[in-house]
Design a protein around this nucleic acid. Structure first.
Lengths: 154, 154
DNA sequence: GTACATTGTGGGGAGAAGTGGGGGATAGTG
DNA sequence: CACTATCCCCCACTTCTCCCCACAATGTAC
């Protein structure tokens, strides 16, 4: 399973195209090469999954009973704002306009490698959440999450 | 098994015809290509199944005990408003008028890929249920699906 | 420092997708 | 049998997506 890291800023042209960072491309599993699924994130950003990681998500979804009320709602709202993407011959993604609106991305997109997925942010939204988090509270958060015993669940 | 995703808005012409979204078409199993079953949904929307997915639904129905009163009621009301549809040569569906009435679809239809089936909504009904779902509960639903460890049970 | 390869950015154009209307065949009704 | 409504095919037009080409910027090797 690939693990993405690092932050890369790229410009978005007036057709909504943005270059996929070369360094991230090296991390993508060659099987899934240039096939991705993009969707709304929980913060005002986008989540980008290479095909192989996305398939794990779909496996989970497939287990949900889509005739139960809760199941229907989960599946509908999860998949609604998801789309498959393919890199063009110049290694670019073309971002669906509804996702650019959602994430407030106009001319610049920031890619953040985040483990099995990649987050894509607009510079201003990224600033916003950065400012909400002081260094002190980050330290606390970090200890909360990373502290404690190393357990072996996976 | 195909897994539909994404949301696509199309206009319905005065003959009740609506284009089947090209991106969804790519997900349809070629075996079932252009043969569908459409029926009333559990919310005020329509469910559209490509032929191969529909067969799975029928298998489920076949397991229902139709000598029990509840069983008969479910089967009767599930199937009575179902119809087979075929795409025309322009890749359009023509929606039965009784289903347009039921779902309140007039001039615009919104397709939502929802796993093994596709939901078709009128814009106003979709707004209604969107307003029922707060961002917080969406977040919960999201974590329900994405959170936790990716396990490999199947 | 210079040459070359890779990466990033922009635009023009062919083809696909979406939309609307006309008309012939078919079926249902009186 | 005639009339009407419906269905479905074909044609036409507009819009948009994506492929290709070109070039600028950056990085690397010698």
């Amino acid at each position: 399973m690939p693990s993405f890291k690092g932050q890369y800023e790229h410009s978005v042209d007036n057709k909504g195209r943005v270059a996929f960072p070369a360094k991230l491309r090296k991390t993508v599993n060659p099987d899934a090469q240039d096939r991705f699924t993009i969707l709304r994130g929980l913060e005002p950003c986008l989540y980008l999954y290479p095909q192989d990681s996305w398939e794990l998500v779909e496996k989970k979804l497939a287990k949900i009973n889509n005739f139960s009320r809760n199941g229907r709602t989960v599946i509908r709202n999860f998949l609604r704002f998801a789309e498959d993407l393919v890199l063009d011959k110049q290694n670019r993604l073309s971002l669906p306009s509804h996702l650019m609106d959602f994430s407030n991305i106009n001319t610049t997109a920031i890619f953040i490698g985040s483990g099995e997925r990649i987050e894509i942010w607009s510079p201003d939204k990224l600033d916003e959440i950065d400012n909400e988090l002081s260094f002190e509270s980050y330290q606390e958060l970090f200890e909360q999450v990373m502290g404690g015993d190393i357990d072996d669940e996976d």
